[in-house]
Amino acid sequence: MKNRIYLYARFERFWHWSQASLIIFMALTGFEIHAFYVLFGYESAVQLHTTAAWVLIGLWIFAIFWHATTGEWKQYIPTFDRVVTIVRFYSVDIFNNAPHPYHKSRLQKHNPLQRFVYLLLWVLINPAIWISGLLYFFYNDWKALGLASFLSLEVVAVVHTVAAYLIFSFLIFHVYLVTIGDTPLTHIKAMITGWEEVEQEE
């Protein structure tokens, strides 16, 4: 039995897609700054990367406010409940055309595995890239901030790049897993319209 539910609020969708485009744009400019290719030119790439970063920071301030006021932050609380089942589904059962063992609901949008991955992103990888990115940007103020004695630009740059690689890897899995709906476009449609057909818990 399928049910059509309103899973993603308007702000959530706006946040998702604008964040997605900003992250992809920052990867594009970031890896140019990393000297992988020439697209915008180094100087423009740095300026665009910086501007995009400030926009993303602004977006996050709204997102944090939204999560806090709506209580949606609870969606990210990790749980071990049925983790094994989910892992088993993705590694074995999915090939046997088994249905997804986790049924989304308005109150629990993320399956336990998703929760862990998002938590990893929010607690480790994102802070790593933001803190290193801001340190990079404010390099000239290190002395005034008392950071110059123990920080090295190279370490900051390495942390920033490692985090970027990890986010890029996340992006690849994220985009792939989006296509594992009933049809390849099911999940994308949901993230555009907000409505998703979900199997009702029996």
Partner: peptide, 11 residues
């Protein structure tokens, strides 16, 4: 350390 020079092969 010069950003943009493609240093950091191991990375």
């Amino acid at each position: 350390f010069m950003p943009g020079t493609g240093t950091g092969a191991i990375l």
